[in-house]
């Protein structure tokens, strides 16, 4: 089975950061609205750059 290191890394980071991120995200205000979107955007960026890197590796 192929090892998808990027996905494992994301899951690992989410697992160890969950307590801290959870508090920050669910603060008693509507700020969680944009904080969720920031985290979501960062995840997309990560996937995007990883996809870019994989494409270059495949081209090589």
């Amino acid at each position: 089975m192929r090892t998808h290191s990027t996905l494992l890394f994301i899951l690992f980071m989410l697992a160890i950061l969950e307590p801290g991120i959870g508090n920050w995200l669910f603060e008693e205000s509507n700020r969680s609205w944009y904080r969720f979107h920031i985290l979501w955007g960062l995840l997309i960026l990560f996937i995007f750059f990883n996809s870019l890197r994989q494409r270059k590796e495949n081209e090589l």
């Binding site: 669910f26 205000s29 509507n30 700020r31």
Partner: peptide
């Protein structure tokens, strides 16, 4: 009115 308002629907 929005960001700092208490979030009544907070789970």
């Amino acid at each position: 009115q929005f960001l700092d308002a208490p979030q009544s629907q907070l789970p």
